[in-house]
């Protein structure tokens, strides 16, 4: 049985004549430990798809199952818990909290977990070490570079060891050298067993994935480009 399974996913916004079908009848599966890229032009429905996969945007119809859990049958708060336990987010614009230090940003997913402050700090430092940011724990986001911010975002995504990482254009704001470093980092995490779904415009980045889901006009048009 597949680790992630989408059946007949559709998402429409608005009603009547103003209805927009962002996602139309999508079926796909992702195995545990897979690295999958989602590609498509702007407005193709990639971000909507990723938000549905991220348990933040209920589909208009269809079913979405992760590890045997029918995600959208969970109540709102249970879905929040699901996000915390199963998914690490790497946002396009980093989305770091500006008034928290690097290490505090990384500790955020552990905030509501019952664990000593010391233990949280140790886990966050380990995650930062993993992304090559040891020694920059106490800096503020405004005091580090774009590439470092992306690394902090990745460290925050992996600090509580979620089985799935969702990345939205993780290198969209980075230069080519930093892009290679970040993609290498994601690839390493994938090799260590983390399932990764990544939205990207870049063919070069998509090439790091094992499989590409091509989205166009809200439909999947290619499933096995690797």
């Amino acid at each position: 049985m597949s680790y992630i399974k989408a059946e007949g996913l559709s998402k429409q916004y608005g009603s009547g004549d103003a209805t927009v079908l962002a996602i139309h009848n999508m079926d796909f599966t992702v195995e545990a430990g897979e690295f999958v890229s989602i590609m498509g032009e702007s407005g193709a429905g990639k971000s909507t798809l990723l938000s549905i996969v991220g348990a933040m945007n209920p589909p208009s119809s269809g079913k979405f199952v992760v590890d045997g859990i029918d995600v959208y049958r969970l109540g709102s708060e249970k879905r929040t818990d699901f996000r915390r336990e199963f998914i690490g987010f790497v946002f396009q614009s980093f989305h770091l909290v500006p008034y928290l230090t690097v290490v505090e940003n990384v500790m955020l997913p552990l905030t509501t977990v019952k664990m000593s402050k010391k233990k949280k700090r140790v886990l966050a430092e380990e995650a930062l070490d993993q992304v090559g940011l040891a020694g920059k724990e106490d800096r503020l986001p405004s005091q580090i570079s774009g590439g470092e911010k992306e690394r902090v975002a990745i460290a925050r995504a992996v600090v509580n060891d979620p089985p799935v990482i969702l990345a939205d254009e993780p290198t969209g704001n980075l230069d080519s050298s930093t892009t290679r470093e970040i993609m290498g980092l994601l690839q390493r995490l994938n090799r260590e067993g983390t399932t990764i779904l990544m939205v990207t415009h870049s063919q070069d980045c998509a090439a790091y994935a094992e499989r590409i889901l091509q989205v166009s006009d809200g439909r999947l048009i290619g499933k096995d480009e690797s």
């Binding site: 991220g54 708060e77 929040t80 818990d81 996000r83 946002f91 989305h95 955020l108 997913p109 509501t112």
Partner: peptide
């Protein structure tokens, strides 16, 4: 708004 969105996305409940 953005900050609260981050909190909610990474697993902060409404009550948090």
């Amino acid at each position: 708004t953005e900050e609260i969105g981050i909190f909610r996305a990474i697993g902060f409940r409404k009550s948090h």
